[in-house]
Design a protein around this nucleic acid. Structure first.
Lengths: 220, 220
DNA sequence: CGATTGGTTGACTCCAGTCAAGTGCGGTGG
DNA sequence: CCACCGCACTTGACTGGAGTCAACCAATCG
């Protein structure tokens, strides 16, 4: 459980446990939330992977992000009262549902909780401000790849080797590219000896060089 | 004062007034915050206009946003402890500095304050998720223009006529375009009878049509 | 007045998108 | 066991929309 709210101690986790619903199991391909659903809960991912996405007018999918262990989903829905995106599991996953209206009652008992929530929102803001800039395809790809070691630890089966839990199409829709371009970037990075690719498995061979390329975008 | 924290009542404003520093006057062209400065305060704009921007590696400016009356600045800095952007005034402006560390102490006295802050962060998240999508130049321009009536009310000198407080270059850097493209879009919209332009003054002639064009992006 | 600055317009380029064909892997069933 | 199918991915040829470069214009300011 500790791992669900990084930075909060065991006592805080115990107190939070009293108000959340956990575990909620979600199978791959199953939706936790549909766009337009009424907002009641924030969700914290315990394990597995989720994809947040919207379908735009011309039928294309905009992937808002991927969420793994310890990350919060649903912050964007507070203002409007409705989720604006779909959350679908890409792996067998477990989440905790945190009733937003009950968070207030915990502030007295858990002083760092407010800061935890603001940090979660704040961190995402920083990422989005940068991701919304215009960056070359290879910059986007490189920044995405270097973010994997930090976030997708549970999917690593060797240092710097990860199984991508999402399709090329999902990656493309997250980075605002088309699958063909993602494919070309993979090919280019392989040709240049920066990565090794074997189906869903990706190995980062020259992390420093990738960081260099992805620098304009920073951490995703 | 009420107008600084939209949604909070007079009593809440009085209590907040006890912890904030106000007014802080900022002249046009003067910086309130520099990128890298240590984060202590959130800023609420009382009047005037601010531009938040960063300079990227190749010397180009990324405008993160424009902030007017009642809007909060600095939320992105909570996680890192440092502001990641510069805040510069475009008009004679006044802001309030809100010490982040003291906000906690107000939650008991002002129950809706937490929700107010989360909504501010949440609303911005929604905008950014959408703005980070890939949209045609004319979609970006149209969405930007239709957002003016709602946000830049104080700069209107007739219904649907506004003085843009920022340069074409600033608009371009906000919408991830180049000034030439912004110029071309203005020209096209004028040719199509959607807007009238006179220097910094813009009149929206066919709001419905502009909303239609900007729909994929939604509200900015 | 000239010099500077912000904005507009036109000609050209280039990167990523589009369209289409080809490849390879996993699953199914004969 | 293998032939077939479907789907995800890859690769190549072409296109188009926004960026680049450059010239021009208008307003402002010494």
């Amino acid at each position: 459980m500790e791992i669900m709210f990084p930075g909060l101690d065991a006592d805080a986790h115990r107190r939070i446990a009293a108000v959340i619903r956990y575990p909620i199991q979600v199978d791959p391909g199953e939706h936790l939330v549909r766009s337009g659903d009424r907002f009641h809960d924030l969700y914290s991912v315990h394990d597995g992977v989720f994809k947040a996405y919207v379908d735009d007018a011309n039928g294309r999918e905009h992937v808002w992000g991927f969420n793994v262990q310890g990350e919060l989903m649903g912050l964007h829905a507070i203002t409007t009262g409705h989720y604006q995106a779909n959350f679908v599991a890409l792996e067998p996953s477990r989440v905790a549902a945190i009733p937003y209206s009950q968070l207030f009652t915990l502030f007295d008992q858990i002083p760092p909780l407010f800061d935890f929530l603001m940090r979660a929102a704040s961190g995402r803001l920083g990422i989005l401000e940068r991701l919304s800039g215009d960056h070359a395809a290879q910059v986007r790809m490189a920044a995405f790849l270097v973010s994997l070691p930090r976030r997708f630890q549970p999917l690593a089966h060797a240092p710097d080797t990860f199984r991508l839990p999402m399709s090329r199409r999902d990656v493309a829709n997250y980075l605002r590219l088309v699958p063909e371009t993602v494919s070309r970037m993979f090919s280019r990075f392989v040709r240049d000896g920066l990565i090794r690719v074997d189906g869903q498995d990706v190995t980062l061979l020259k992390l420093a060089r990738l960081e260099e390329i992805g620098k304009p975008l920073g951490e995703l």
